[in-house]
Design a binder for these strands. Structure first.
Length: 693
RNA sequence: GCGCCUGUAGCUCAGUUGGAUAGAGCGUUGGUCUCCGGAACCAAAGGUCGGAGGUUCGAAUCCUCUCAGGCGCGCCA
């Protein structure tokens, strides 16, 4: 017998709006619907019968035989009502028996109310196929903005950036699948220190002319992002050798910010070429963007000046007249902020406590200041806007736009004006993200501050073993550590494209051994889908606050809890139908009548089928949970468990050789339902299903 | 010094914001196949949930203390 696979779901909240919405567009959300219906019935009964408001949790019993849904509410009520919990549970159970869709209600243990659903009725509602992508245009509730990737445009993307993009992109897919309108922004810090460093490298270290850099950036064979990766590491050493050289960087940085200088032109060449490389890398992973807002426009369109005025007006910042921050504009520390741990008590001695410098004494604005301006713009609160021009067109015809200082061509969508903003940024920037939110709050935009979500995640580091494999030398002290932090400055890390290439190679070997008779482009396509599936799943299976100590062995694995495992389950399901056709058979959906469902889902013979179907139906609740907790790993886990459930079923039951025609049709129907949900779930993870494996 | 995060099986990680007998993958050991393709399936072994108190019907989950590790705390981004 297969084991029961516990699925982590609960229903603290009801989803009336979602239910209505999905009914309207025809997406099957049977599970959430049942859950909220029962929740509501229980709440109403408790209020009517006992006159108390109860928090009605609906979850699942520990074992399937005990029921489909569980309500552990009687124990809590027992205290308030001063009556035995089991007695209360009996009364609740009796009340819930009359709820449509409930077949049976038991009382178990200390006072759990366990519900058994009407299997056939439930199954009949799962008939409607999911309408993929039917969501974006019709959702209510305003636009959500998700900012992710945000790689400094001065070097190739590395494995840590891939985690950011995979999380951000998956979150976007989840939101869209749940009917939200989403705008994806990838912020480009094209005037920062990191770009300046590479410019210094080209102009001073390599003594290159503007045309040389332009030519190099155009040359596909040069792998410009890789070239800059190495150059950046060299510049870092160059600057470290002689502190006087730092002046070179400062001057370059200033020239870049001014614009119209040689350094600015080279910076533009470098950052634009690198961004194109980044987009290409991310596209390999099925990651796309709508808009690339750039720091240069934030500067040139004077977004900061506008934000500065607002902040002064509301006295959110003030000019420090004494102490170490004399001459700077600093942000006050409010009570609310202090609660959230913002402030710097290390400076208690010199009067600079609980403040954050926003404008330096030389008049330039810090990174946080620019970020506050950008965040205000995202909510449509700045009173200024970017101009836009098309940056690139994706193979599917969609356009990525980039910010511009002048009116551009084309007709861009109405960017910005978000109702809620998710910033996918690693956990080390928590402090700064809090200051940004505190800035909004100080301006009186408390609601927007609350709707500024820092989608925080931990870094990807390298395991010491991984460093060995890559020939990275470690000190004795480093060797003792559980992981080694990647460093762009040192050129220490795994480049995203290298990892992808290696995965492709491994996948291709596997495909070759199984499909030696197939054309090579077929094999390449499949190998690529498998490689991407493996990588995206690997990056998504860990919860956000888990540090991933990168390990080749685990990342290159195609067995066990991996993307390919899930892909394989879908391929198997589809093979059944393909084989059926080859044999001249036909799947007739209409043959699966309510009576057929009734017959084959009935306990106990139908338990295995029901379990699988029930599990497959929980797609909606998982997506909702992942959104509410900003935890895409829940979806990855679900995909794996459902695939596992299917693989087990696949082994236990022969379908094509089934003699009972009604049973055969029922089994095919079940496979179809599971395949459908698995495909949808993989799509949420940005993973495609190969034609064969 | 202050703040945040983490500690669960040999290893890597889940664990439904307090619920019933703590789960998975890998690894180990032993099984399954004239098959809808084995990138699969089944089983076994393996856990004082870092430690100590507390809160209550009930704690891996909440509170306090403590030990260990990580990350932040700049007129860098």
């Amino acid at each position: 017998m297969r084991k029961y696979l516990p699925l982590s779901l609960s229903a603290r909240h009801s989803y009336p709006n979602s239910v209505r919405y999905f009914k309207r567009i025809g997406i099957s959300i049977v599970y959430l619907f049942m859950q909220s219906r029962i929740q509501q019935a229980a709440r109403e009964f408790v209020l009517r019968q006992y006159g108390v408001e109860a928090s009605v949790v609906v979850n699942r019993p520990p074992r399937v035989e005990m029921g489909d849904l569980a309500l552990p509410l009687a124990m809590e009520l027992a205290r308030k009502l001063r009556r035995p919990p089991r007695q209360i549970a009996e009364e609740v159970a009796a009340a819930l028996r009359s709820v449509a869709g409930v077949a049976k209600a038991d009382v178990a243990g200390a006072g759990y109310v366990n519900l058994f659903l009407d299997r056939a009725a439930y199954a009949a509602q799962l008939g409607a196929p999911l309408e993929a992508g039917a969501s974006a245009t019709t959702a209510a509730g305003g636009k959500l903005i998700v900012e992710h990737t945000n790689i400094n445009p001065n070097k190739a993307a590395h494995i840590g950036h891939l985690r950011n993009a995979a999380l951000g992109d998956t979150f976007v897919r989840l939101l869209r699948a749940r009917g939200h309108t989403v705008e994806v922004q990838n912020y480009i810090d094209n005037t920062g220190v990191q770009v300046a460093d590479v410019v210094v490298g080209f102009l001073y270290l390599e003594q290159k002319k503007e045309e040389d850099v332009a030519r190099l950036a155009q040359d596909p064979a040069a792998r410009f992002d890789y070239y800059c990766w190495d150059l950046y590491a060299r510049v870092t050493r160059f600057l470290a050798e002689d502190s006087a050289r730092l002046e070179l960087r400062n001057r370059t940085l200033q020239e870049i910010e001014e614009g119209h200088t040689l350094a600015a032109r080279v910076a533009e060449i470098v950052s634009t070429a690198i961004v194109r490389r980044h987009l290409a890398t991310m596209l390999r992973l099925n990651v796309r963007y709508d808009l690339l807002p750039r720091e240069s426009e934030i500067l040139h369109l004077r977004f900061w000046d506008q934000a500065f005025e607002l902040l002064q007006e509301k006295r959110a910042i003030y000019l420090e007249t004494e102490g170490k921050n004399k001459g700077c504009w600093v942000m006050r520390q409010t009570e609310g902020n202090r609660e959230q741990g913002i402030g710097n008590s290390a400076e208690e001695e010199d009067g600079g406590q609980d403040t954050k410098v926003i404008v330096r004494s030389n008049g330039t604005v810090t990174y946080v200041g620019k970020d506050i301006a950008y965040q205000l713009w995202k909510f449509g609160l700045l009173g200024k806007n970017f101009f836009y021009r098309p940056f690139e067109t994706y193979p599917d015809g969609r356009t990525v736009w980039v910010s511009s200082s002048e009116p551009g061509s084309g007709s861009p969508p109405a960017f910005g004006q978000g109702q809620k903003v998710y910033n996918v940024i690693d956990v080390r920037q928590s402090y700064l993200q809090k200051i940004v939110a505190a800035g909004l709050r100080a301006l009186g935009y408390t609601e927007q501050a609350d709707r500024s979500i820092h989608f925080s995640y931990e870094m990807v580091a390298l395991s010491p073993r991984c460093c060995d494999e890559m020939g990275i030398e470690l000190s004795a002290e480093e060797r003792q550590r559980p992981f080694i932090e990647v460093s762009g400055r040192k050129g220490l890390g795994i480049k995203a494209d290298d990892l992808l290439d290696r995965l492709l190679e491994e996948a291709y070997k596997e495909v070759l051994s199984r499909h030696s008779d197939q054309p090579d482009d077929f094999r390449r396509r499949i190998a690529q889908q498998i490689a991407i599936g493996a990588l995206r799943y690997f990056l998504l299976r860990y919860t956000c606050n888990t540090i991933i100590a990168f390990d080749f062995h685990e990342a290159l694995s195609f067995e066990g809890e991996t993307g390919p495992y899930v892909q394989y389950a879908v391929v198997r399901a589809r093979n059944i139908f393909r084989k059926l056709e080859e044999e001249g058979g036909r799947f007739d959906e209409n043959a699966v009548t309510p009576a057929v469902l009734e017959r084959f889902l009935a306990a106990p013979e139908g338990d295995a089928f029901w379990e699988l179907l029930y599990q497959a139906s929980q797609w909606d609740a998982v997506a909702e949970l992942a959104i509410a907790t900003t935890e895409p790993a829940a979806v990855a886990k679900y995909a794996f468990q459902l695939a596992q459930g299917f693989n087990n079923f696949y082994h236990r039951f022969r379908i094509l050789t089934e003699q009972d025609e009604a049973r055969k049709m029922f089994l095919l129907w079940l496979v179809k339902r599971v395949e459908d949900r698995l495909t949808t779930t993989l799509d949420l993870l940005g993973i495609e299903v190969p034609e064969a494996m």
